[in-house]
């Protein structure tokens, strides 16, 4: 890895050539990985909270509240958690793409959907 390549990548992160080995320095791939892990941790906390939290551990307590005609805990267990799961996957796909572009490791220019 050359110091110069990293400097170029960090000065002007959006203009580099994709898949150019020079932009994939150890520094920005390691930073990308850390950013990815932070994002994953946040999303998995939500994943745990809606399913194991609201749907199982806190279900009886939440049942005292009513939501669109449902007991709230029951709603989380049989409806709500599933909607949140779908949202989490799309939020991840959206956020991680922004992070990838920032660190120059995206696959935007690759042969995509056919």
């Amino acid at each position: 890895m050359s110091e110069q390549a990293y400097d170029q990548a960090s000065e002007n992160p959006s203009s580099h050539d994709h898949n150019d080995q020079k932009t994939l320095t150890e520094k920005n791939t390691a930073d990308y990985w850390q950013a990815n892990l932070r994002l994953l941790a946040k999303l998995l906390v939500v994943w745990f909270a809606v399913s194991f939290g609201c749907g199982i551990l806190l279900v009886d307590w939440l049942d005292q509240f009513t939501f669109f005609g449902f007991k709230l805990g029951f709603w989380f267990a049989q409806q709500g958690a599933i909607y949140v799961f779908v949202a989490l996957i799309f939020i991840y796909a959206w956020r991680i793409q922004i992070i990838e572009r920032q660190f120059g490791v995206d696959d935007d220019t690759e042969e995509g959907s056919v």
Binding site: S51, A81, F85
Partner: peptide, 12 residues
């Protein structure tokens, strides 16, 4: 929960 929550792990 079990059969849908696994997809979050799969995708992430």
């Amino acid at each position: 929960l079990g059969w849908t929550g696994g997809y979050v792990l799969l995708a992430l």
